[in-house]
């Protein structure tokens, strides 16, 4: 369980990092942030990058601010930064409620949000959050930048729209309107394990009824995504057991479930039904 040989680069500026990445990307160069996902798969030699561009000392990537109604999370911001709300509104509270489900404390102190997004594990809590909230993902490369909407970013199991010479420099989230309700729930075999299914829901109450519902499901399909059928089952309804059950049922039916030797599609649908309803129940607690 020792990684294959590699060269580690330690740039101090973003330009330097992007220049190195441009140079080493064709030789399977990879970006190293917290290393909580990449390093284990290197230890198993499932990943064998010849070069690592270590961004841990790159100035400016630790940005964590609100600007123009958006929360901006730089590539070096660790999960642990969200343990307490990073902004006073519902988004800060939402991120704080989600972050405690990510693995264990030591991992949260090393791993980064942008690293999780770029790794694109289907069970990642941050990938689910980004997909549900339609985050904008800022990809930088030598001499260029593009903004990728979350719905176009996740392309499948461990697969994203990032090009090999692109660095995910920032994730941006629209602040949530005051009064936004939210709830998160995930299912894993043990505390801290990868979620076998997870759900995040947000909505507002307008005239006593649900509006602007967002229901995201992770861990159940190759990539996390919003489930329009579940959102439709909520919008215009009174918040409560009937609407929540209908949304859960709709989500369970809508997914294209991941299956493996232990986990049938039917079981995955059971889990989605449970986590969606529980996320919605958490929104009213």
């Amino acid at each position: 369980m020792k990684p294959a040989p590699f060269v580690r680069h330690t740039p101090r500026t973003l330009d330097e990092a992007l220049a190195i990445l441009a140079e080493v990307a064709p030789q399977d160069g990879r970006v190293l942030a917290g290393g909580q996902s990449l390093v284990p798969i290197m230890a198993f030699r499932m990943a064998r990058p010849a070069h690592l561009v270590d961004i841990n000392e790159v100035a400016g990537l630790d940005k964590l601010i609100v600007e123009n109604g958006m929360l901006i999370v730089g590539a070096r911001v660790r999960h642990g930064a969200f343990h307490k709300p990073v902004e006073p509104g519902p988004l800060g509270a939402l991120l704080a409620s989600v972050v405690h489900n990510i693995a264990h404390y030591p991992i949260r102190m090393r791993g980064t949000m942008c690293g999780s997004l770029a790794h694109a594990d289907p069970s990642s809590e941050w990938c689910l959050t980004a997909a549900t909230l339609d985050a904008e993902l800022v990809a930088r490369r030598k001499g260029g930048e593009r903004i990728i909407p979350a719905r176009d970013f996740f392309e499948g199991l461990m697969s994203t729209a990032l090009k090999e010479d692109e660095l995910l420099a920032e994730a941006r989230y629209m602040l949530l309107p005051a009064g936004t309700k939210f709830g998160f729930n995930e299912f894993s075999r043990r505390a801290g394990d990868f979620a076998m299914s997870a759900a995040l829901a947000t909505y507002r109450i307008v005239d006593g009824r649900i509006a602007d519902a967002r229901v995201g499901v992770g861990g159940a399909e190759a990539s996390p995504r919003r489930i329009p059928e579940a959102e439709a089952a909520l919008n215009g309804q009174m918040p409560g057991d009937a609407a929540f059950r209908a949304a859960a049922e709709a989500a369970s039916a809508a997914i294209d479930p991941l299956e493996d030797i232990q986990t049938t599609g039917e079981y995955r649908r059971d889990l989605v039904r449970a986590v969606v309803r529980r996320a919605l129940e958490a929104s009213v607690k």
Partner: peptide, 9 residues
């Protein structure tokens, strides 16, 4: 024990 009937946990 408690068995979660919906998830089997």
């Amino acid at each position: 024990v408690e068995v979660d009937i919906e998830t089997g946990q």
